[in-house]
Each structure stands twice: as C-alpha cells, then as structure tokens.
Design a protein around this nucleic acid. Sequence first.
DNA 1: ACCCAGGGTCATA
DNA 2: TATGACCATGGG
Length: 228
Amino acid sequence: MPGLNRSPSTRTLERIHDALLARFGPQNWWPGETPFEIMVGAVLTQNTAWGNVERAVANLRAAGVLHPRALLRLSPSRLTRLIRPSGYFNVKARRLRDFVAWLVGRIGDQYPVQGLRGIATPRLRRELLSVRGIGEETADSMLLYALGRKVFVVDAYTRRFLARHGLIEPAASYGAIQALFEKSLPRSRPLFNEFHALIVALGKNLCRPRNPRCGECPLLKVLGAPSL
DNA sequence: ACCCAGGGTCATA
DNA sequence: TATGACCATGGG
C-alpha cells in the first residue's frame, strides 16, 4: 500500500501550500492590531468561531481594556460580561486573567514583544504552557502571530485534513504533526504564518467533520489523491 | 432542530 | 494514557 500514512515530503507540503494559496489567496493573519490583542484573541478563539471573538474583542476595545494593566483592573464579573459573545465566558474570563497576570508578572509594563524578547522560544513556550488555560495551539499561536517566533501552529483542521489525505494517523500527537511541518519546511516566519492560516481557510470552507468524503476538497484534484 | 466553531481542563478507569 | 463530560454564544 504505497503512499499511505508515510511522512509527507517537503515537496508534498509545498504543493499543498501552493494549492491552498491558489484557491484561497493570501490570508494575512493574524487579524489583530497589537501583539497583546492577538494574544487575547488566541485565548478567546478556543473552540469558537472567529466572528464571536471579534465581538468580544470589540467590547474590550470599547471599554479601553486592550492593555495588560487595564484588563487586570477589571472586576471578574465585568470582564465576563465583556467577553460574553465569545462563549465559555466564565472559563475564558479566568483564563484571560491568569494569562495577563502571568504576563504582567513576567515583564511588567514592557510591551510584550520587547519584554519577552530575551526569552528563548522553547523556554517561553514552556512558560506559556504552565499558565492554566493555555494549551499547545494557543501557546504556538501567541508565539508565531504575536511574537514572531518560528513555530508551526497545529489545529483540529490540520489534523483532520492531513488524516483525510492519508498523511498522518488520525490520532497523531500535536508534537508529531508540528515536527512534520517544521522538519520538512524552510523555517520561515511568513511561510508558517500563511500556511496555518490557509489550512484554517480550507477548514472553514470545506473540511467539515460530517463530510468525511470531503468530495469538494480542492486538494484531492490538485494533489492527485487518493494515493497522493 | 440540528451541527459546528481557529481548545483545554478535569475526573475517572 | 486514554477516553468522556464540560464549558456557551451565535451563524449556517
């Protein structure tokens, strides 16, 4: 059974990227104006449609609390009300506070990218993961999109999409999938940035959980699946 | 009336 | 370590 569940080559991944780019165009992620706003969005978007996150972020902006100190000054109940549209508001209010408390404790009033600049990426990632409510995808999204670190972000779409094309086992770990990209692709910030965003664009459009045939998936044609 | 979303934690076996 | 329950709004 050649071609099934073997590690995708550099060329395969590049073809996937190019096909997605041709189909969906540049995504220009992350939608957010400051590193702090991006990090806040990374927490709020956990298992949540982005449109809902935008409402919550708009509320925070209108309240003038898209800054670490200001956000920490909010009462828990006020913060919960502001982020209500993003769902899981009780959980996420705690997660946001825990994260921002860590951030302020770590770098004080320095701007996040400046204050965290001296911390090596593996260590910074470990520290982020130690904050309750920040898992691997959230940490990596912050690292790549807010802080410009070269880490590949893996999400549910990435796993589903690779599994359906026979490129990974469905149960492959986050780290295994991430390593697959990071080992095979040039370590390029714009490439990592765009590739993940394009996979999300694919997921939003076509690669739905209840569509296992994925018949409309443009990659099936472009890449010559099923054997790939 | 469903299904789903740019996850993560915690209890249980 | 590996499942399952739980969190909750809003669009399709």
